[in-house]
């Protein structure tokens, strides 16, 4: 059985983000701030768990991104993926979900996989579209926000549960090959092991230049980024910790909350 896991490099959103107001866009050039999308870590881990539970499973991990994104491919191999594919993009290239899905769909070996896994969304653009769009381009069934996976290889289907609203789960079976986007909490992603990292450092990823592919025109464009306005007053408390605590305590008492 062959599994493909698609991973993305994202900026650390909890780090302060510098903004260039004149160009209306963000400055995130320091590679220190980039890491694997957390939702994709769950997808890598799920693939490894399937490999551990079934015979003859190989895992390829793929990213579409700049040269520095090689770091996350090595991390995925450190976790236990067998090989890596880097679909290399120039800095500034379009990274919208349709463009990325169209690039992955043109990867030469894409037809060989029984199962394609990816995270439910990327932490940076939060669209959640690349997985379902890729499934559509490949003409295979897709389920999103998956929290449980059972593979029935001989019968050629996968049984899954999707997380939906109000504590409910949507139960379904998909014919293989299929694509699943994995919701957080499905597992606890492992840390890369030293022996796997040493192996990863020796094995160069397969590199495919995205600019060499016949890419479609982007269907949507981010015109600008703006700092959102405040929807409430947002009184910022000042001073020492104790002074802030006293002020907040008075506000809560005044509002009759205690």
């Amino acid at each position: 059985m062959k599994i493909l896991v698609c991973v993305k490099e994202v900026p650390e959103v909890n780090a302060p983000v510098r903004a260039d107001i004149s160009s209306g866009w963000l400055l995130l050039e320091d590679s220190h701030y980039f890491r694997m999308n957390r939702f994709d870590e769950f997808a890598v881990e799920e693939a490894i768990r399937i490999k551990e539970s079934l015979p003859d499973v190989t895992i390829a991990v793929l990213t579409v991104g700049q040269a520095r994104a090689e770091k996350i491919l090595r991390r995925a191999m450190g976790m236990g993926a067998d090989r890596a594919i880097h679909m290399l993009q120039e800095p500034g290239a379009d990274t919208s979900p349709f463009t990325v899905a169209s690039a992955i769909a043109q990867h030469p070996g894409i037809g060989e996989y029984d199962l394609v896994l990816t995270g439910v969304m990327a932490e940076d653009d939060m669209q959640g579209q690349t997985g379902p769009m890729l499934a559509e381009l490949l003409g295979i069934p897709c389920a999103t926000a998956v929290v449980l996976v059972r593979v029935f290889l001989e019968e050629r289907f996968v049984s899954v549960e999707r997380e939906i609203e109000r504590g409910m789960r949507d139960v379904l079976e998909l014919s293989l090959p299929a694509l699943l986007t994995v919701q957080s909490g499905i597992n606890v992603p492992r840390y890369p092991s030293l022996s796997n990292m040493l192996r990863a450092n020796k094995a160069a990823p397969q590199v495919i230049e995205v600019s060499s592919l016949a890419m479609p025109e982007p269907r949507d464009v981010v015109v600008r980024g703006v700092l959102p306005g405040r929807s409430r007053k947002g009184l910022v408390l000042e001073g020492t910790t104790e002074k802030k605590a006293t002020e907040l305590a008075r506000i809560l008492v005044k509002r009759g909350l205690i």
Binding site: V13, A19, D124, D220, V221, V222, P228
Partner: peptide, 12 residues
Amino acid sequence: LGGKWEAHVASN
């Protein structure tokens, strides 16, 4: 970006 920014997206 975790809600820190708002993107204005147009369709082609």
